[in-house]
Lab assay of single mutants.
Amino acid sequence: QVALSRTQVCGILREELFQGDAFHQSDTHIFIIMGASGDLAKKKIYPTIWWLFRDGLLPENTFIVGYARSRLTVADIRKQSEPFFKATPEEKLKLEDFFARNSYVAGQYDDAASYQRLNSHMNALHLGSQANRLFYLALPPTVYEAVTKNIHESCMSQIGWNRIIVEKPFGRDLQSSDRLSNHISSLFREDQIYRIDHYLGKEMVQNLMVLRFANRIFGPIWNRDNIACVILTFKEPFGTEGRGGYFDEFGIIRDVMQNHLLQMLCLVAMEKPASTNSDDVRDEKVKVLKCISEVQANNVVLGQYVGNPDGEGEATKGYLDDPTVPRGSTTATFAAVVLYVENERWDGVPFILRCGKALNERKAEVRLQFHDVAGDIFHQQCKRNELVIRVQPNEAVYTKMMTKKPGMFFNPEESELDLTYGNRYKNVKLPDAYERLILDVFCGSQMHFVRSDELREAWRIFTPLLHQIELEKPKPIPYIYGSRGPTEADELMKRVGFQYEGTYKWVNPHKL
């Protein structure tokens, strides 16, 4: 086992960053958080920038500027975001240094004079007029057009580079997404736009490419001749908990499936790229999406959770019991969808996408189930092999396979070949997804960000279904809070070829 401390991990990262040409360590950078008073800024962006600063992973002359409508001070920003920093008493001095680099400007999102004030403020910072500028839009999409237009007109660096990070949702359907994309691309070049999907920053999602293309053993079996089906799962054990009003506007397909799960599907299904260059990788992902037809209604199961009468606390409440959810809402909190990649490698292999709230566990994984062994000599005792990439929690890679049961006879039983990170790298604290992705933006690497043509294809696949749901308002199937979801989803999976045995229990190697 390799035991690495946080300091050692960050030392390795620093070495990698400083050796590259793309990370300008000594240049002045300004990180501007648009929507600095909001939840995302408070819980994710400010803490992430602090962790990067604490670990010495930001360029040395980096300033952080918050911008929002609320009249706040840096002290206010500190008060609301610091509880999420997880700072230790030993880091007190470092924390003071961090907040000394912070400033805040209040202004409207659609007022040109406010942006001119913001620009004057940035120019007044040390070497601010020639600094590289990175704008993070932690804002609702309704203000994107006004904000990007004003940034472009008043706040661009004339000497350094300018980059803009856009948070999902990128529209509600193909038409609104196209409108937003066309607007942003009329102001910024594609190499300046970073559409963030934080799932692409997760260690195991990034590991998929290495697993596939750096190991000879997987190449020959990664196709329709050997793989019976692919299941991509995202499960949350909690409901909307008072935030249903926002969720109800989008629903589970827009929230998770059309982005996170579809991105994971691309990494499983794509061909080997010409290189690890950002556009070479994204070219292959677009090719996969172009091979997927629009979702067919007979390959869809929609569910909505109801309270568990035997549960406790939140578990007793259904989705419609959330006071922020519109009365009688038919918005799905669970969806199972089957897609097919219609190309030579994957023809006929079902890709089953499942996601839901208020389920029995927290889990995100990719599961490849292989065909049955031909010419069975073990009297149907063999179960199908599976390769599982567990994204969260407890990152893991393992192969479910058959071995001989101890004893006199040739009785096979299920076991696993474990390729888990935790076994080799004991207690290594890896940077989280937002840390990686923000560092990628500083480096100018777009590999783990969504390109406009990729986004367009993703919406093309799901828009007809979303429009049909909005028009017909089908009643989702009720499922109990804390269950596996509607049984109809299991029946759909069985119908397209997935075999669920229920006889195997994964042993978490992190707890051995």
Score class of each variant (00 low, 15 high):
R254W: 01
V256H: 00
V256K: 03
V256L: 10
Q258R: 02
Q258P: 05
Q258V: 07
H260F: 02
H260Q: 00
L261N: 00
Q263F: 00
M264F: 05
L265Q: 00
C266W: 00
C266V: 07
L267R: 01
L267D: 00
M270D: 01
M270S: 07
M270C: 13
E271Y: 05
E271C: 07
K272Y: 05
K272M: 09
K272V: 07
A274T: 13
A274V: 15
T276N: 10
T276F: 03
S278H: 09
S278L: 02
S278K: 05
D279S: 10
D279M: 12
D279F: 07
D280S: 11
R282A: 02
R282C: 01
D283F: 01
E284C: 12
K285N: 00
V286E: 09
K287C: 08
V288P: 03
V288T: 11
V288S: 08
K290E: 14
K290F: 03
K290N: 13
S293C: 09
S293H: 12
S293E: 12
V295Q: 11
N298V: 13
N298G: 13
N299T: 11
V301L: 08
L302E: 06
Q304S: 07
Y305L: 02
V306T: 15
D310E: 14
D310R: 12
G311D: 11
E312I: 13
G313A: 12
G313Y: 11
G313K: 10
A315P: 12
A315G: 15
A315K: 12
T316G: 11
G318Q: 05
Y319S: 00
L320K: 12
D321S: 11
P323W: 11
T324N: 08
T324M: 10
T324E: 07
P326M: 06
P326E: 07
R327A: 14
G328S: 13
T330R: 13
T331M: 08
A332F: 02
T333Q: 03
F334I: 00
F334A: 08
F334H: 07
A335I: 05
L339P: 07
L339N: 04
Y340E: 12
V341T: 04
E342P: 13
E342T: 11
E342S: 13
E342M: 15
N343P: 03
E344A: 10
R345K: 10
R345P: 06
R345W: 07
W346N: 00
D347A: 11
D347C: 08
G348A: 05
L353R: 03
L353S: 02
R354D: 04
C355F: 00
C355Q: 04
C355T: 11
G356C: 02
A358E: 00
A358N: 02
L359I: 05
L359R: 01
N360D: 15
N360F: 00
E361R: 05
E361T: 08
K363T: 06
K363D: 05
A364Q: 05
A364I: 10
E365T: 08
E365P: 02
E365C: 06
R367I: 04
L368F: 06
L368P: 01
Q369T: 06
F370N: 02
F370E: 01
H371A: 10
H371I: 08
D372M: 05
D372Q: 10
V373A: 09
V373H: 06
G375P: 10
D376Q: 10
I377Y: 11
I377C: 10
F378S: 05
H379M: 09
H379T: 14
C382N: 13
C382F: 13
C382K: 12
C382E: 08
R384W: 04
N385V: 01
E386Q: 05
E386A: 06
L387V: 06
L387K: 03
V388F: 02
R390H: 12
R390D: 03
Q392I: 03
Q392E: 03
Q392C: 06
P393S: 09
P393H: 07
P393Y: 03
N394D: 14
V397Y: 06
V397F: 11
V397H: 00
V397K: 00
Y398C: 00
Y398A: 01
T399K: 00
M402C: 10
K404A: 03
K404C: 01
K405Y: 10
P406S: 07
P406T: 06
P406E: 01
G407K: 04
P412I: 10
E413Q: 13
E413A: 11
E414D: 09
E414G: 09
E416C: 06
L417F: 01
L417A: 04
D418N: 07
Y421C: 04
G422T: 15
N423L: 13
R424D: 06
R424S: 06
R424L: 00
N427L: 08
N427T: 12
V428D: 15
K429Q: 12
K429Y: 11
L430M: 15
P431C: 08
P431K: 06
P431L: 06
P431N: 12
P431T: 08
D432T: 09
E435K: 10
R436C: 05
R436F: 03
R436M: 01
L439Y: 09
L439I: 10
L439P: 00
V441L: 05
F442V: 14
F442N: 08
C443A: 12
S445W: 11
Q446I: 10
Q446D: 01
H448A: 08
R451I: 03
D453E: 01
L455C: 06
L455I: 00
L455N: 10
R456E: 07
A458L: 04
R460T: 08
R460H: 07
T463C: 06
L466R: 00
H467N: 13
Q468R: 13
Q468E: 14
Q468F: 12
Q468K: 14
E470F: 08
E472G: 13
K473F: 10
K473P: 11
P474T: 14
K475M: 14
K475S: 14
P476Y: 00
P478L: 07
P478K: 13
Y479Q: 02
I480F: 14
Y481T: 08
G482V: 00
R484K: 04
G485V: 00
P486E: 01
P486K: 04
E488G: 09
A489K: 04
A489M: 08
D490W: 06
E491A: 12
L492K: 06
L492G: 00
M493N: 11
V496Q: 10
V496E: 13
V496Y: 12
V496K: 11
G497P: 00
G497E: 08
Q499L: 11
Q499I: 12
Y500I: 06
Y500N: 09
Y500A: 06
G502N: 14
Y504P: 05
Y504C: 05
K505T: 14
K505W: 10
K505G: 12
K505V: 14
W506C: 03
V507E: 14
